[in-house]
Simulated assay, not measured.
Amino acid sequence: MRDAMEKAWSDLVATARRSVADGLVVGTSGNVSVRVGDLVLVTPTGVPYDRLGPVDAVAVGLDGVQVAGRLRPTSELPLHLAVYRGTGARAVVHTHAVHATAVSTLVDELPAVHY
């Protein structure tokens, strides 16, 4: 299980860093998580993704209780846990893309679209 957790954390960090490189998050906005069995690895709050390392891993149970890590999980942990509890999702990437954030200030509801 330890190897799976280390691999999952490494993949999570790479995904978080890519979200910055792709312009999907600014600063420390947005968050990423991955489910490994009954545990959820999640980005910690307030840490720039380029500074995340192996010692920064944060793990919580599906009940939200932190079981590993010295940093606090993202404040949007309840969103991630709701997705895991209600779906078969194995990972969540929650971005705060500039354009999406701007649109969210202009309208109350967006129609579902697929390009």
Results as ranks from 00 to 15, higher is better:
T28F: 02
A4R: 11
A82E: 15
H96P: 02
E6H: 07
R85F: 00
L110G: 08
Y49L: 00
V60E: 00
A102C: 11
V92D: 03
Q66C: 06
A16K: 01
V20Y: 11
A14Y: 02
G69C: 06
P54L: 02
R70P: 00
A89K: 08
A21C: 02
R17N: 10
G86R: 15
V42I: 15
Q66S: 04
M5E: 11
V113A: 13
V13R: 09
H94W: 15
A59W: 03
S33I: 05
H80F: 13
V67L: 03
A89H: 10
A21F: 00
T45E: 04
A4I: 01
S10D: 15
R90G: 13
S29F: 10
V65L: 09
V58M: 13
V58T: 07
V36W: 01
L110K: 11
G37W: 07
V83F: 05
D38L: 03
E109A: 14
P73Q: 10
V13E: 09
G27H: 12
A91T: 09
T105R: 14
V47G: 00
T43E: 03
A57E: 06
P78V: 14
P48M: 04
V13F: 10
T28D: 05
L52E: 04
R51M: 10
E109N: 09
V83W: 03
A4M: 09
V40S: 00
V107R: 11
A100D: 12
H96M: 02
S75T: 15
S10H: 14
R70F: 01
L39R: 08
H96K: 07
L106R: 09
G64H: 02
T28C: 07
